[in-house]
Nucleic acid binder design. Structure first.
Length: 270
RNA sequence: UGUAAGCAACCG
């Protein structure tokens, strides 16, 4: 409908808490509050607004109220959106708890999207037991061969510091992306094993800036600016993270001149 | 084209 298209256009914009309240009012007036297309986008918008100091959770609370009120709230896309909204708002426990509620709902069917957000929530909150449960559900539901589901499980175990579990899953993957390799490299680096980090970095079939940034940061954290600089020089495309990682490394070594030189010549500053 | 996984510092 025309009003639906208007809402879609409004939700594409960068919104504020105030503009979202207006859009919500417009949706109510137009009887569009249970339109699944609009509702998923609305919830995503709620989770991505700038947080206000007075009420940082206003957006996510608004999103969850709408979700709970929706008659078709067992819709898989809608549920996945709500789970991710909790993760984006750093409400990891709420994410896992919502999943546990949804499992009691016979109409809810989780998919590979569901499990990647859940694994992320467990990884970021170091929720080991919840993570085990999610891993079991991935196995039971047959999504362990999915690229996103398995990569997020590798990342989850890496964040737990369980590199042998991460590595086992990585080895069992039938398909790997740049993200899968980077997650493993970063895991080894953060757990103090630069040698394995470098080994898998070198074996990565393709490397993007995140692959390099992770390996550079591993050297930076060790104070090995020589190795960091070599990789920085050889990488084809440097982004703001690459430059900031190097600058931070030189600053921590007390080499402010090198840091300042990089700062001055970096093409885009954030 | 209604939904998903990786990297720095800053700020809290």
């Amino acid at each position: 409908s025309r009003r639906e298209r208007t809402c879609l256009a409004l939700l594409q914009q960068r919104n504020t808490r105030a503009s979202l309240l207006q859009i919500h009012a417009f949706m109510l007036r137009s009887a569009l509050e249970t339109n699944l297309n609009l509702l998923t986008r609305f919830i995503t918008a709620c989770a991505s607004i700038a947080v206000a100091v007075s009420d940082p959770l206003a957006g996510i609370h608004h999103a969850r109220r709408l979700f709970d009120r929706c008659p078709r709230r067992s819709d898989t896309f809608l549920c996945n959106t709500m789970l991710k909204a909790h993760v984006d708002s750093r409400q990891f426990k709420e994410c896992v708890y919502l999943y546990q509620l949804l499992r009691r709902d016979a109409d809810f069917v989780p998919d590979n999207y569901t499990f990647s957000s859940l694994a992320k929530a467990c990884g970021l909150s170091l929720g080991y037991w919840e993570g085990q449960e999610i891993h079991n559900h991935v196995l039971k539901t047959g999504f362990s061969s999915n690229l996103f589901a398995s990569t997020s499980l590798v990342d989850m175990y890496a964040k737990f510091g369980l590199m042998s579990c991460a590595r086992k899953l990585f080895d069992e993957m039938t398909e790997r992306s740049q993200v899968s390799w980077t997650v493993l490299v970063d895991g080894y680096a953060r757990n103090g094993d630069v040698d394995h980090a470098r080994k898998f970095f070198d074996q990565s079939p393709e490397k993007d800036s995140a692959s390099y940034n992770v390996m550079i940061d591993a050297y930076v954290k060790l104070g090995d600016m020589g190795s960091a600089q070599s990789l920085f020089d050889e990488m084809p495309l440097r982004n703001a993270v690459s430059w900031t990682t190097m600058i931070d490394g030189y600053c921590n070594k007390g080499d402010v001149d090198s840091a300042r030189l990089l700062f001055d010549i970096m093409p885009e500053k954030n």
